[in-house]
Amino acid sequence: STGEEYIAVGDFTAQQVGDLTFKKGEILLVIEKKPDGWWIAKDAKGNEGLVPRTYLEPYS
Results as ranks from 00 to 15, higher is better:
residue 1 S to H: 02
residue 1 S to C: 12
residue 1 S to N: 14
residue 1 S to L: 06
residue 2 T to H: 01
residue 3 G to Y: 10
residue 3 G to Q: 13
residue 3 G to E: 13
residue 3 G to D: 08
residue 4 E to V: 06
residue 4 E to L: 10
residue 4 E to R: 07
residue 5 E to L: 03
residue 6 Y to F: 07
residue 6 Y to K: 01
residue 6 Y to W: 07
residue 6 Y to H: 07
residue 6 Y to I: 01
residue 7 I to T: 09
residue 8 A to F: 01
residue 8 A to G: 05
residue 8 A to D: 00
residue 9 V to P: 01
residue 9 V to Q: 08
residue 9 V to E: 10
residue 10 G to V: 09
residue 10 G to R: 14
residue 11 D to P: 11
residue 11 D to F: 03
residue 11 D to I: 01
residue 11 D to G: 08
residue 12 F to E: 01
residue 12 F to S: 14
residue 13 T to P: 13
residue 13 T to D: 06
residue 14 A to L: 04
residue 14 A to W: 03
residue 15 Q to Y: 06
residue 15 Q to T: 13
residue 15 Q to S: 13
residue 15 Q to M: 04
residue 16 Q to T: 11
residue 16 Q to N: 11
residue 16 Q to G: 12
residue 17 V to F: 12
residue 17 V to S: 09
residue 17 V to H: 04
residue 18 G to N: 05
residue 18 G to C: 04
residue 18 G to L: 08
residue 18 G to W: 05
residue 19 D to N: 15
residue 19 D to M: 15
residue 19 D to T: 15
residue 20 L to S: 01
residue 20 L to V: 03
residue 20 L to M: 12
residue 21 T to K: 10
residue 22 F to G: 08
residue 22 F to L: 11
residue 22 F to T: 11
residue 22 F to N: 00
residue 23 K to M: 05
residue 23 K to R: 09
residue 23 K to S: 08
residue 23 K to N: 14
residue 23 K to L: 08
residue 24 K to W: 03
residue 24 K to H: 04
residue 24 K to E: 12
residue 25 G to N: 08
residue 26 E to F: 04
residue 26 E to P: 00
residue 26 E to K: 04
residue 26 E to Y: 07
residue 27 I to K: 11
residue 27 I to N: 05
residue 28 L to Y: 08
residue 28 L to S: 00
residue 28 L to D: 00
residue 28 L to H: 01
residue 29 L to M: 12
residue 29 L to F: 07
residue 29 L to V: 11
residue 29 L to R: 06
residue 30 V to L: 09
residue 30 V to Y: 01
residue 30 V to T: 03
residue 30 V to D: 00
residue 30 V to E: 01
residue 30 V to K: 01
residue 31 I to D: 09
residue 31 I to W: 07
residue 31 I to V: 07
residue 31 I to R: 11
residue 31 I to P: 02
residue 31 I to L: 10
residue 31 I to Y: 07
residue 32 E to K: 05
residue 32 E to W: 03
residue 33 K to N: 09
residue 33 K to V: 08
residue 33 K to M: 10
residue 33 K to Y: 03
residue 34 K to H: 03
residue 34 K to G: 06
residue 34 K to A: 04
residue 35 P to R: 09
residue 35 P to V: 11
residue 35 P to W: 04
residue 35 P to F: 04
residue 35 P to E: 09
residue 36 D to Q: 02
residue 36 D to K: 14
residue 36 D to L: 10
residue 37 G to P: 08
residue 38 W to R: 15
residue 38 W to S: 15
residue 39 W to T: 02
residue 39 W to V: 14
residue 40 I to G: 07
residue 40 I to K: 12
residue 40 I to P: 11
residue 41 A to V: 12
residue 41 A to P: 00
residue 41 A to G: 08
residue 41 A to Y: 00
residue 41 A to N: 00
residue 41 A to T: 05
residue 41 A to L: 08
residue 42 K to T: 10
residue 42 K to S: 13
residue 42 K to Y: 05
residue 43 D to S: 10
residue 43 D to E: 03
residue 43 D to L: 02
residue 43 D to C: 09
residue 44 A to F: 10
residue 44 A to S: 12
residue 45 K to A: 07
residue 46 G to S: 11
residue 46 G to R: 08
residue 46 G to H: 06
residue 46 G to D: 07
residue 47 N to D: 13
residue 47 N to Q: 08
residue 47 N to P: 01
residue 48 E to S: 05
residue 48 E to F: 13
residue 48 E to D: 13
residue 48 E to R: 07
residue 48 E to M: 11
residue 48 E to P: 12
residue 48 E to N: 02
residue 49 G to S: 01
residue 49 G to T: 01
residue 49 G to V: 02
residue 50 L to N: 14
residue 50 L to T: 06
residue 50 L to Y: 07
residue 50 L to S: 10
residue 51 V to P: 00
residue 52 P to W: 15
residue 52 P to Q: 15
residue 52 P to G: 15
residue 53 R to W: 02
residue 53 R to K: 15
residue 54 T to D: 15
residue 54 T to S: 14
residue 54 T to Y: 07
residue 54 T to F: 04
residue 55 Y to P: 08
residue 55 Y to I: 12
residue 56 L to F: 14
residue 56 L to V: 07
residue 57 E to T: 02
residue 57 E to V: 01
residue 57 E to I: 02
residue 57 E to G: 03
residue 57 E to M: 02
residue 57 E to S: 03
residue 58 P to M: 07
residue 58 P to W: 05
residue 59 Y to E: 11
residue 59 Y to Q: 05
residue 60 S to G: 04
residue 60 S to Q: 11
residue 60 S to N: 06
